[in-house]
């Protein structure tokens, strides 16, 4: 049984803002299926009472004084922008798009 379908791959690509050609969808579906199939070996483990680990070093509440420090200038922050105008990033139409 395959673990990920062609439709799943199309859906995931859309979520990730990627466009795939038809032959790419087939290739990726097969490859992702093989990877997920390998990862399924953990299904043999009893994990019911095991807490998750999200981070390997136990640091909590890393705080600093609420003081203004040096930051990039507006000019430096915009220097690499594909389009900028009036000190801001410029993008194509947003309003009126389907969600």
């Amino acid at each position: 049984m395959s673990r990920i379908s062609r439709d799943d791959v199309v859906h995931v690509a859309r979520l990730a803002r990627l466009e795939l050609a038809d032959d790419q969808i087939d290739t990726f579906t097969g490859q992702l299926d093989a990877i997920l199939d390998h990862a399924a070996d953990v299904e043999a483990l009893d994990l019911a009472d095991v807490p998750p680990t999200s981070h390997p070093y136990p640091l909590v509440n890393v705080l600093r004084a609420d003081e203004v420090g040096p930051t990039l200038s507006n000019e430096a922050a915009l220097a690499a922008a594909p389009r900028a105008e009036d000190g801001r990033f410029r993008v194509p139409t947003i309003l009126g798009e389907a969600p």
């Binding site: 803002r17 194509p92 947003i94």
Partner: peptide, 20 residues
């Protein structure tokens, strides 16, 4: 939007998809 490759398109969503 802020740095890197942009492939132009009519809407922002299409621009993001095309660029990525």
């Amino acid at each position: 939007v802020r740095y890197g490759l942009r492939v132009d398109a009519a809407t922002t969503n299409e621009m993001m998809v095309a660029s990525r």
